[in-house]
Design a protein around this nucleic acid. Sequence first.
DNA 1: TATAGTCCCATGTTATCCCATGTGGTCCCG
DNA 2: CGGGACCACATGGGATAACATGGGACTATA
Lengths: 156, 156
Amino acid sequence: MALFLSTFVNKVDKKGRVSVPAPFRAALAGQAFAGIIAFRSYKFRALEACGADRMDRLSRSMDDLDLFSQEHDDLAATIFADAHQLPFDSDGRIVLPEQLAQHAEIAERAAFVGRGPMFQIWNPEAYLHFQDEARARAKRAGATLRLRPPGPGAES
Amino acid sequence: MALFLSTFVNKVDKKGRVSVPAPFRAALAGQAFAGIIAFRSYKFRALEACGADRMDRLSRSMDDLDLFSQEHDDLAATIFADAHQLPFDSDGRIVLPEQLAQHAEIAERAAFVGRGPMFQIWNPEAYLHFQDEARARAKRAGATLRLRPPGPGAES
DNA sequence: TATAGTCCCATGTTATCCCATGTGGTCCCG
DNA sequence: CGGGACCACATGGGATAACATGGGACTATA
């Protein structure tokens, strides 16, 4: 399972290309599709991203259900319709589609933020603000994360 | 399994032809029938579409009659009766039958909307409205989609 | 013969490929 | 321990191929 850690800020050139950080590319190595899948976060002014395998699982999950609740239908519609398949070029770069860049307010530079099994792409300044707030909230709430016991298929 | 992502808007020429987006064609590559299957959505003013393999699966499911309630049976009958086989021309275009175009109110331009294992074809303006509403609903509901554990064929 | 549906080719535009360059970090050798 | 060479990675630009789209010719059908 892909594991995305740390944060990297890369430049967006005038063609809209950005290098995906090498560690993230390494985490995706060996997948059927050489690239990432990105879609607009419906919670933040940012993009959610992952490898194709994860999207495959989502798709399979949908396949099992013959009945859709309104919520799942809406969510799936939002995610799949909005998702862009962004292939790596030979140098490990992707092209940020206009629509996505706009949603995340990304122009000159993009911050790749590791989130474990997925990652996000932010406007660097916007992310700094968000990070400060998140840290403050976590401190106030005394948040803790309970580890799931390791097992087969576990994403630890 | 075919995976349809993202949304593409293409022009319908005066002969009724539309290019199927290249990524969707790629997702269908290798199937027995070079084209798509489309039928009227019973929920939206739009068309549902998929590859022939998926229709095969539906067909096989029909054989297990007791799996289907009256509603599902009716539904399936409606789907099969209404389904059109739309072959690609040598440039990857299909011709939208009058009946289908009318139901989806498609005239000048058509929006191909990825839905994971299937996709939809909308009037672009109508889709924008629907998309906004779906997004708003998903956000209000704080919807989350539960991932199915990785299974056979799934990576990670 | 008229009409509708296919097929094939032409075109502009956009995106993808490939190479060149710079820079930072690491490793090795002195 | 210091210096130098190498390598991996991010970045930039120009050439090339893919794609969407339009029009005309050919074929089957009534």
